[in-house]
Amino acid sequence: MKRIITILLLGVTGYFVADAVFSIPFGVDKLNIAKEYLLNSPEELKVANTVTAVVVNFRGFDTLGEVTVLFLAATGLGSILFRRRKYHTGLNPQREAPQASRIVQVGGKLLFPLILLLGAYVFIHGHLTPGGGFQGGVIIATGYLLLLVSFRKFAVKHSSLTWVEAVAGVTFAGIGLTGLVFGKDFLENFLPTGVLNSLLSGGIVGIIYVAVGFKVASELTGILDTMLSIKVEVDEENEEN
């Protein structure tokens, strides 16, 4: 009986899928919206990277929602994991783990600025090259992860992270609201668009991606620090290390 139902259901699904596939005429370009994006983003917005134009400009409201989801995830994770910590000191709570070797420490110190530079490059050039605020922010967070793993005494300040995050988020929403002042829609471009393929092009896209980069970097750094600082058992004797 079960098999007959399964076969019937499969047959019904297959019929409708086949129907939908055969009803599209062969060889006809159906991608009207995509064509619109491809034509508009270099010409009107002067954004070389069409993906960025779609993500930040045409669907900027959606990206604002995504950033909010990320913020909620970071906050939720922090509030769940924070209870596991019996105490919070200025030290990196991962100090129970063995100290990383001196080679790793020196290398981490040397690599950290390079990683920051790469992350900043990725999110500043988000409207010109592949990449953008989210990717650049993640790269910066990996730099902080390197320091957190290398040094037992390294700890990030959650208060300053929260400030960076808040300022970045307010910048994102504030740019959208400023557009309303100039008589445009929410998150519509109101700045001069500049020349295609130059760094100062694309109007608000670049500014928004810088803000997104800072926001993602601070949120992910906070998440990493919180996750590294989970302590299941507290050993009172080893506290002075």
């Binding site: 990383a100 070797s101 080679i103 790793v104 290398g107 981490g108 040397l110 690599l111 390079l114």
Partner: peptide
């Protein structure tokens, strides 16, 4: 040059 030997060292 910096990252490859350090990672394999660790």
């Amino acid at each position: 040059i910096l990252s490859n030997p350090i990672s394999s060292h660790s």
